[in-house]
Each structure stands twice: as C-alpha cells, then as structure tokens.
Simulated assay, not measured.
Amino acid sequence: MLNVYLAGEIHSNWREEITQLCEKEKLDIKFTFPVTDHEASDNCGVEILGAEEKNFWKDRKGANINSIRTKKSIQDCDVIIVKFGEKFKQWNAAFDAGYATALNKSMIVIHNDDHQHALKEVDGSAAAVASDQKQAFRILKYILEGSLD
C-alpha cells in the first residue's frame, strides 16, 4: 500500500478527482489530507482551548493544533502531492512542501504555468511537476504498477 498525503489548496475538489481516479483503477493507496473545512481549521484552537481577543493568538492556536495533524501525515506518507491553486496564495502548501523536502519525501507538485516562476524552488525539490490531477494520478499508477496504460 502506498501512503499519499494530499497537501495544498482547499478551494476546489482536486483531492476527490485524484482519489476517484485511483479508486476506479483499484490502486492500493491510503490517502490522508488536512482538514479541508476552512471554518473548522481556522477555529479549532479557540473552540478547543478557549477564546482569544486578538486574531494573532486565535490563528496561532489553530495553526499549532493543525500542525500536529500535518506533521504526522507528512512524516507517515510515502509520497506527498502538493497542489497550488490559481486563485489564492497557499503559503501553507509551500510550507508543507518545504517540510516534506526536509524529510526527504518524494513529492509531486501540481500547478499551472502562471505559478512556474514563483514556485521554481519548490519545483526544484519535487520528483515531478504536474499541470493537473490526471498527470498526478498517472504518476501514482506508474509507481504502483509500472504501467503507462
């Protein structure tokens, strides 16, 4: 079984696209990913540990709790796929890519050509840079089956 962590933007259904393609092909993959409910991710710290007057401390509590899940998932994965979306700057995705690189994880990056220059260092650390989810899926299939079909 291949353990794949899906990091990156949370404003589209790209995770579902990849997981559905892999399920259709019956690939033996376990997927993990961050909490994609934006409100839950932002508010987990104050919901669990109590309110804060300043947004800085609210964000800090949430980020610290979310980092427990993220670090564990990246440490445990065989491959990390990091998707950079078109609409927002995903600093968290860049951070996840850096952490994965520090752990010497195999990394597939997905982004469009508009982000090529901004992500040149991230791309330089990746095993592959894909332009869409289908390419990332095909890489996973090739890793598991050695097939280009």
Rank of each mutant, 00 (worst) to 15 (best):
A40G: 13
Y99M: 04
D28A: 07
N55D: 12
L144I: 06
V35Q: 10
Y99S: 02
S12R: 09
D114M: 07
K71S: 11
I74M: 05
L119Y: 05
K134I: 09
F56N: 03
R69E: 14
N43A: 02
Y5R: 04
W14E: 06
Y5M: 05
G146D: 07
S131N: 13
I81S: 03
F137L: 10
I29L: 02
D28Y: 00
S106N: 12
E52M: 08
D96C: 06
V109Y: 06
A102P: 00
L103T: 00
F84K: 01
E145R: 08
I143C: 03
L103G: 01
D132T: 03
W57T: 05
F88Y: 15
L103K: 06
N3Y: 15
V82R: 04
A118V: 05
G50L: 04
E145K: 11
N3K: 15
H38L: 09
R138E: 15
I18L: 13
V122Q: 03
K134W: 08
N92K: 15
H11G: 08
C77K: 01
W91G: 11
L2A: 07
T32L: 02
I74V: 09
Q90M: 13
Q75E: 12
Q133G: 13
Q75M: 09
W14I: 02
L6R: 01
D123H: 10
Y142S: 10
V4D: 07
D59G: 08
K54Q: 12
Q75I: 04
N112M: 02
D42G: 03
D78V: 08
E17G: 04
V109P: 00
L49S: 07
G146Q: 03
G85F: 05
I65F: 14
K89C: 10
F88K: 15
S131I: 12
K83L: 07
I108R: 03
D123L: 00
T70Q: 07
F31T: 02
K134N: 12
